[in-house]
Each structure stands twice: as structure tokens, then as C-alpha cells.
Write a protein that binds this DNA or RNA. Structure first.
Length: 883
RNA sequence: GGGCGCAUAGCUCAGCGGAAGAGCACCUGCCUUACAAGCAGGGGGUCGCAGGUUCGAACCCUGCUGCGCCCA
């Protein structure tokens, strides 16, 4: 080793304490600029835009999963030599943020109206400066390798210009329009909501049947919202329904109001449901709205924005839930209640932000005409420009984009991007672009509403890169389209479809991402959805505190099968923590024993079979992990590494290495040990970046794993030169393992203490073949060589690929015959079952005729082996004392 | 009501045509100088039910039952 060579630091603490080191390691990465993307780079780009978390939010387990996967993807690509951009930021969450600040104001005894719009918006900015973006610090703890120099916020000036530009373009193209329609209204947030901001649940309500009219002309209608009858402007029946044919075209008196309303025939009425007649409230129900339109019925609004009844009379001023029983009581008094079903289970829409029951309401709103946009969004996936993983979920995507309703984008809020439309004194409507002066003068005013937050989030993949300005053209040119979007399948519709529509439209048909990877949802240990009301929420910060960021990440990665939900519990995290500890201790052992990465690996001929075996296995694992990660198979890749590290490297190679280190092969062993460990740390780095960074820099003296080369496929070459799998070494080490395991089993059955050395004579053709491994076998099975006094008290036989091995042991005492008989009988039962199964197959002529020859041969070998085992074991049993 | 998905060890899940697997939990013995956050050994499953296809089915097909999700 020359003076200039990187120095190994062997001063590792005896235990890994994540809390002591993670923050400093992260800061070093950021300071070194490893996460900063260079738009001028010659390297091929790899881009992910972070689904922007809500400015009011904090990191929950769903984010932790999402971020772990994105971090794993970007870290691996960075190591492979890509120019990686992972772009962070937040969205302004119109309703949620406004709610938070309004609550704060309420504590001070004022409303936003007291403050006025301008001052209120200032307050929101002040709130954001003070409390917003907590989640960004939590992302640092998790280790997210995002480019902080490019952090964005949807309300920033640049992104606001993007919003205005997009609005103007869509408006000019006739894809944005204003119309009076039924919308989902939240009476608490006082705003319109789009369909996807409404959550449906099966709620208990009531179904009340009301008789309209008298005698032969009476019609019974049923409703779950009795109070809406005040706004009825018709009754509808199916045109073919003979029960009501004579009434169609007549009118009927609407109880409590004295109004007369027509009876109309409409195809959309289901004659099978209830009485086959429905009340029609066009201003308060989307279906009724359509019926009303077809039959030209009046649209009578009966509630204000707080869902309080506005119809003059006894119900005026009542909340809708107060009015409901009041109206029923009044009807009952008139003897008009024919039936009541209570409780009655039915689907009720709730505001996704505050859970208030949605009130369908007729109102004037701005809309995006989604048909052409949605078609393009569907086509991009249909023709393969954007690939959805796992592919089964593409169906759901199509279902959504192919049946999308127009999108209500105006919100009756103050926090958000204000609609850039001005109205003139003579009914003029002017849409203003970002560099245009709005019309001034008397009577002109801007639309008071703001845009749906998703409108600005939909622009995220390119607005964050400078669109539509030119200054940042290099970023956009280099990093758009983004490579992959990672998100939960639950927001496929919310966000993915919106971005697809806007990206394709704004970027001349270029899709916002080449791949969409959808992961599952986080659940608790019993597979139940985590929710505050269930009280089963696990806080990722708590896990990071107690188990470390790496353990938290590894737990999530190990559970992340594509498209599948994942159950989590503390035990899982503890297991991942244990794995990190194992890795730490194994690395410490290697370094304390002089593992080296500076020297080249000895030539194959110089290596032991154990060396060749572990190197071959490493080569296989590297290519498998590479393949799995290429296909977003995070759980399989993480589990493969877990088992290779623990079961093969630690449980076997390290133990075999101990033997080699005290012999002639010490130098080569150090090189192999260092080499394998180096590669394992690199492979694990995307999942557990902190502990691997600490260990790898100590082992190699290198700068940072963040920018170390990936052991698998890299951009410039095929990756680390790893020996191919070595079948001879595999077979030999496999035999060594089997022999050791069998001896251990015998010892355990015989009650020999693990620490006790047992004098043993090894012989037989199988052993002759393993002579080079005698030291290893004696060491791992705790055996000593027989001396002159040797006198075997027990013996076993172990069948290996290389032949039978006779193991004679001096247990210095009587053997437990019962235990030995039990052991042999168990082996016998296994062999007999095997013989039955194989003979069954081989006795079937159809099997011999039709099964492939290699399968038949394999079965024959198994049959022969089993038959021989039975003979051997029976002989052993017969030879036991007392038989 | 329409559509999709899932039923494999006590729990959570892999496996998806040719010998039933993992993690955790469980039992036994061990502080064997990297590691008790560990080591060694072990027990545990007619792969939801009923048919069918096949030489061969946990795996493919049909039906049933039970759960879950999305949409209306």
C-alpha cells in the first residue's frame, strides 16, 4: 500500500448508534453537492420529481415508503453514472392551509373576513414561514438525496406564472369555460370541490317515503334527504311505467309549499326501485339536475353556502340537518309519511379535508373540458410512451381517464392562485396572461376565486424546471420528460392523470414521465389501514428515533412488492435494526482482521474453494439484485441482500474465513473478505445509506458511497469484474455445509453442549474428497482430531454429493440411544415418503411417456437415493443397542 | 349495482405447472474472543371449498364461500 492510497480507519465504535451519526453524514452529502444535478452534464439524465407533500403536513409512513423507494432508485442510478435529478418541493394545499390559518385566527377571535383578503394571504405566508414545511426536515432525517438547490413551492412566483400561462392557454383553446352546474359543495369550507376530493362512505341515514298529491292521483316518492323536497320542481317516472302513464303531463301539489309541480317521464328513472317515482330537486342533486335540464324544470336553490334553508316559511334559517326532521314531522302531521326506514344504510359523500357531508349545489364555476386532454393521457399509456408498473394497474388508469368528467377548478378560497379573469362593466370577460396588464378602470374586477391546488400540482413535472420561462431551458431540456414517477396506487387518479393531461398539453405531446411506479398502501400488523380513529398509526419519526433511519427504510423496502399493500409492525423494524447491527459487526470483524480492498484479488488458482464459492455467489447476487431493481422489485432485492449477507456471508464465509486467516491463506482471505464486503455495502447503500456510508468509508478510506460505482451494470462498462459462479466450489462448500449441519444436529440431539470440543474421526469416500476442508469442518462443528486414546462412542453417516462420510465421535460417555433412534426414525420417514412419491410417479406409464426426459431422470435419481437411504438407516437402527 | 383483487405455517407475506418457503412468533441448548440487537438445533401447513384440464395442480379453467379495494 503506498502512502497515497486511501487509508482504512479501523477505529469503529463497537456498536452502530444511528442517532449519533446520521445527521452529520447527511449534512456531509449535502455540503459535498452530491445531490445537486448539473444540467450541463454529459451523463444521461435520470429524473424524479417528488410528489409534492402538503405544506401543512408532516411525514407519515406512506411518505416514508414513497421516499425510500425514490431514494433507492436515485442512489443506484447516481452510482451507475447517471446525472440524477430528484427534485423536491411542496404544494400549497389551498383548503388545508386556509383551514389551519383560519383556525389560528378563530383562536384570536377574528375571521378572515375581518382581516380582508390581502392581509389574510399575508398571514398565510407568515404561517408558512413559521410552521410550514416541517416535512422537509423530516426528509433529511430519512436521508432523501434530493436536490435542495432546486426546491420549489407551488405558490412561488415562477410556478404561479406557470399556472397563469397554463390557464390562459387552455382558455384561449376553449378548454376552460365557466358554467352553472351542480357541484360538490362543502358547507364548512365554503367551497366547491372536484369529484376526487369527495370521499364516499356507507352511512346510516333514513329513507322516508312521502305521498305527494291525493287519492288516485297520489304518488309516493322516497328520499334520504327529506328537506330537499322544499326544492322539488317535478316528479319523474319511467315512460313505460303503466302505473303512472295516466299522470304524466299532469301536475301535482307539492306538500308544505302549495306549489304545483309537473309529473314528467324520463328514461333514467328506474321503475324497479322503490315506487318507481322519484322527486326531482334539480338544484340539489346531480341526477335531478340532468332530469331538470331535459324537461326544462325550474332550478330552485333552497340553501345558502352554509347549507341553511333559505325558503321563506317555518324552516327558514334551519341547518339542513335540523330541517330534515322538522320537514318529516310537518309531513307526518299531514299524514303524508307512508313509510320510514331508519337506520337506512346509503352512500354519502364527505369533504376529503374536513369530513363534512357534501351538499350538491347549483353554482357558477370554472371548468376544464377534459375530453381531449384525457384522451391524450390515455393514449400516452396505450402507445407505450408511459409505462405503468405493475402493468395490471394500467386498466384502472384507463377506466379513469376514459370516463373522466369535466373538472371544476374554481375554489371559493383566498389562498391559492387567483383566477386570471377580469369582468367588465358591460359583461366583458377577459383572461389575462402573465405579462399582460389586466384591464383597469371603473367597473372592472377580477374573479374572486382561486384555482384547485391540483391545477398547479398538475404542472409540477415541468413548472418546477422553469417552464414556461427560458432562463431554465437547460434544465427542462436535460431532465424532461422525467424518468419515473413513484407514488401509491391510491392517488393514481388524483395526481398522475392530472400531470399526464397537463404535461402532454403544455409540452407539445411529450409525456411527463416514462414510467409510473405504483406501490401499495401501508397497513398495520393485522393488515388494517392505518388511521387516527383506529389509533394504529405508526410514526416513522418514532421508528427513526428508536431504530434508525436505515432500519425504517429497510423495513419498508423489504415489504414493498409492486402493487401490494404492506403490513408493518414494530417487530419488523427491530428486525431491520438487527440486520444493520449484523452488518456493522461483520464489517468490524473484517476490518479487525485486516480485510483489504486496496490489493487486487488473487488469481483464481490462488483462492480457496470457500473464496471461490463466496465470490461466485456474490457475482450471482449482484446480477440478480441489478435485475430486480431494474424491474422495481424492491422487496425481492432487499430480501436477497438480507439473506446473502446474513445466511451466506456472515453464517458461513466469515466462519470459514476465521480458519483461513490463521493459516497460509490469510492474505488472500483478507482480500476476498474486503472485496465481498465492499460490494455488499455498495449494493445495500440505496436501501440503508447511513450505516453503509459509515462502514464503507472506514473500510476503503474512500470519500463517499453516494458517488461510488455500482457493482452491477454501470453506464461505461459491465460493472465490477466478478468471478462467475463456480459450480465446483458451490458443490464442495455445499457438502461442507451439509456435513457440518448434520454433525451439529447429532450433537444437539445428543445434548452435547455447543462449546464442548468432541474428538472425532472422519473417514469415507465423501471425506476423502473434502480433505482440504478438514480444519473448517472441525472448527465449525467443534471437533478435535482423534488422538491415540480415541475410542468412538457414537457414529453417524452423512451422504454427500461427493460420497458417504463416516463420522465417529468420542462423546466420552454413553450415547442417548432413544434420541438417536428418534433421529434415525425421522430420517427414515422422510426417505420412505420420498420413495413412495417417486415410485408412484415412475410406476405410471403415462408419466414415463409424456414427461420430459430430464424430469424422469431426476425422479429416478431421487428414487434410488431414497431406496439406498432406507437400507442404510434400517441397518443403523438394527445396530443400535437394545434393538 | 358495475369492475378489480385476495384467500399458502399462530401473524404478515413470497412462491404461480414438475421435491411446500421467508420474516416475526414458538420450543430446546448456549455469554463458542464480530455480533445475546447474537449463535446452534428444532416443531409447525390435506396451499379457502367443490368440480374440471393435465402424465403431474398451491400454481391453469369453472363454480361456490369469505374478505378487501375502486367506481356508480
Amino acid at each position: 500500500m503506498t502512502d497515497n492510497a486511501p487509508q482504512q480507519q479501523t477505529d469503529l465504535p463497537s456498536a452502530w448508534n444511528p442517532a449519533d451519526e446520521e445527521a452529520a453524514i447527511y449534512q456531509r452529502w449535502v455540503d459535498a453537492g452530491y445531490f445537486t444535478a448539473d444540467a450541463q452534464s454529459d451523463r444521461p439524465p435520470f429524473t424524479i420529481v417528488l410528489p409534492p407533500p402538503n405544506v401543512t403536513g408532516s411525514l407519515h409512513m406512506g411518505h416514508a415508503l414513497d421516499h425510500t423507494l425514490m431514494d433507492a432508485l436515485t442512489r443506484r442510478r447516481r452510482m451507475q453514472g447517471y446525472e440524477v435529478l430528484w427534485l423536491p418541493g411542496m404544494d400549497h394545499a389551498g383548503i388545508a392551509t386556509q383551514n389551519v390559518v383560519e383556525r389560528e385566527l378563530a383562536n384570536e377571535g377574528v375571521s378572515r373576513h375581518d382581516l380582508g383578503r390581502e392581509r389574510f394571504v399575508e398571514r398565510v405566508w407568515e404561517w408558512k414561514a413559521e410552521y410550514g414545511g416541517k416535512i422537509l426536515d423530516q426528509m433529511r432525517r430519512l436521508g432523501d438525496g434530493v436536490d435542495w438547490t432546486r426546491e420549489r413551492f407551488t405558490m412561488d412566483e415562477g410556478l404561479s406564472r406557470a399556472v397563469q400561462t397554463m390557464f390562459k392557454r387552455l382558455y384561449d383553446d376553449g378548454l376552460i369555460y365557466r358554467a352553472e352546474r351542480i357541484i360538490n359543495w362543502c358547507p364548512r369550507c365554503h367551497t366547491a370541490l372536484s369529484d376526487i376530493e369527495v370521499e364516499h362512505s356507507e352511512d346510516e341515514g333514513e329513507l322516508v317515503s312521502i305521498r305527494y298529491g291525493e287519492g288516485e292521483n297520489a304518488i309516493v316518492v322516497a328520499t334520504t334527504r327529506a328537506e330537499t323536497m322544499l326544492g322539488d320542481t317535478g316528479v319523474a317516472v319511467h315512460p313505460d311505467d303503466e302505473r303512472y302513464a295516466h299522470l304524466v303531463g299532469t301536475d301535482i301539489e307539492l306538500p308544505l309549499t302549495g306549489r304545483r309541480i309537473p309529473i314528467v317521464a324520463d328514461e333514467h328513472v328506474d321503475p324497479e326501485f322503490g315506487t318507481g317515482a322519484v322527486k326531482v330537486t334539480p338544484a340539489h342533486d346531480p341526477n335531478d339536475f340532468e332530469i331538470g335540464r331535459r324537461h326544462d324544470l325550474p332550478m330552485l336553490s333552497i340553501m345558502d353556502e352554509r347549507a341553511t334553508i333559505t325558503v321563506p316559511g317555518p324552516f327558514e334559517g334551519m341547518d339542513r340537518f335540523e330541517a330534515r326532521p322538522a320537514v318529516v314531522a310537518a309531513l307526518r302531521e299531514q299524514g303524508r309519511i307512508v313509510a320510514e326506514k331508519r337506520p337506512y344504510l346509503h352512500a354519502v359523500g364527505h369533504c376529503s379535508r374536513c369530513d363534512t357531508v357534501i351538499e350538491p349545489r347549483l353554482s357558477l364555476q370554472w371548468w376544464v373540458s377534459v375530453e381531449p386532454l384525457a384522451r391524450a393521457a390515455g393514449d400516452a399509456v396505450r402507445d407505450g410512451r408511459t409505462e405503468i408498473h405493475p402493468p395490471e394497474l394500467a386498466k384502472r388508469y384507463f377506466e379513469w381517464v376514459d370516463n373522466m368528467h369535466d373538472w371544476t377548478i374554481s375554489r371559493q378560497l383566498w389562498w391559492g392562485h387567483r383566477i386570471p379573469v377580469w369582468y367588465g362593466p358591460n359583461g366583458e370577460t377577459v383572461c389575462v396572461g402573465p405579462d399582460e396588464r389586466p384591464p383597469g378602470g371603473d367597473g372592472w374586477h377580477q374573479d374572486p376565486d382561486v384555482l384547485d391546488t391540483w391545477f398547479s400540482s398538475g404542472l409540477w413535472p415541468f413548472s418546477t424546471m422553469g417552464w414556461p420561462e427560458d432562463d431554465d431551458a437547460a434544465t427542462l431540456a436535460k431532465f424532461y420528460p422525467t424518468t419515473v414517477l413513484v407514488t401509491g396506487y391510491d392517488i393514481l387518479f388524483f395526481w398522475v392523470a392530472r400531470m399526464m393531461m397537463f404535461g402532454l398539453y403544455a409540452m407539445d405531446g411529450r409525456q411527463p414521465f416514462d414510467h409510473v411506479f405504483l406501490h401499495g398502501l401501508i397497513r398495520d400488523a393485522n393488515g388494517k389501514k392505518m388511521s387516527k380513529s383506529r389509533g394504529n398509526v405508526i410514526d416513522p419519526i418514532d421508528w427513526m428515533d428508536r431504530f434508525g433511519a436505515d432500519a425504517t427504510r429497510f423495513t419498508l423496502a423489504r415489504a414493498a412488492n409492486p402493487g401490494g399493500d404492506m403490513a408493518l409492525a414494530e417487530e419488523w423494524a427491530a428486525g431491520a435494526r438487527n440486520f444493520c447491527t449484523k452488518l456493522w459487526n461483520a464489517s468490524r470483524f473484517a476490518m479487525l482482521n485486516g480485510a483489504t480492498v486496496a490489493n487486487p484479488l488473487p488469481a483464481t488458482a490462488e483462492l480457496s474453494e470457500a473464496d471461490r464459492w463466496i465470490l461466485g455467489r456474490l457475482g450471482t447476487v449482484v446480477s440478480e439484485v441489478d435485475e430486480l431493481l431494474e424491474g422495481f422489485q424492491f422487496a425481492k432485492a432487499a430480501n436477497l441482500l438480507y439473506h446473502f449477507t446474513w445466511d451466506e456471508l456472515c453464517d458461513w464465509y466469515l466462519e470459514l474465513a476465521k480458519v483461513q486467516l490463521s493459516g497460509e491463506r490469510a492474505e488472500g482471505t483478507r482480500a476476498v473478505l474486503g472485496h465481498v464486503l465492499d460490494a455488499v455495502l455498495r449494493l445495500l447503500h440505496p436501501f440503508v445509506p447511513f450505516v453503509t456510508e459509515r462502514l464503507w468509508t472506514a473500510l476503503t478510506g474512500g470519500g463517499s458511497l453516494t458517488v461510488a460505482r455500482w457493482p452491477g451494470r454501470a453506464l461505461d462498462e459491465d460493472g465490477l469484474r466478478l468471478p462467475a459462479a463456480d459450480p465446483v466450489a458451490d458443490a464442495r462448500i455445499g457438502d461442507v455445509q451439509k456435513l457440518i449441519t448434520e454433525i451439529r444436529r447429532f450433537r444437539s440431539d445428543q445434548g452435547v453442549k455447543p462449546g464442548q470440543r468432541v474428538a472425532t474421526r472422519l473417514s469415507g469416500p465423501g471425506f476423502t474428497d473434502l480433505t482440504g476442508h478438514e480444519d473448517a469442518i472441525r472448527s465449525l462443528a467443534r471437533l478435535t482430531a482423534p488422538d491415540d486414546e480415541f475410542s468412538a462412542t457414537a457414529s453417524i453417516e452423512v451422504g454427500l454429493a461427493a460420497g458417504m462420510v463416516h463420522v465417529e465421535l468420542d462423546t466420552s460417555g454413553a450415547i442417548d440411544v432413544a434420541a438417536e433412534r428418534k433421529r434415525l426414525q425421522k430420517d427414515l420417514a422422510v426417505a420412505e415418503k420420498e420413495l413412495r412419491q417417486t415410485e408412484g410417479k415412475l410406476g405410471n406409464q403415462a408419466f414415463l411417456d409424456k414427461a420430459p426426459a430430464d424430469v424422469v431422470d431426476k425422479i429416478k435419481v431421487r428414487r434410488d437415493t431414497a431406496a439406498a437411504e432406507i437400507v442404510r438407516i434400517n441397518a443403523r437402527l438394527a445396530a443400535l443397542p437394545g434393538s
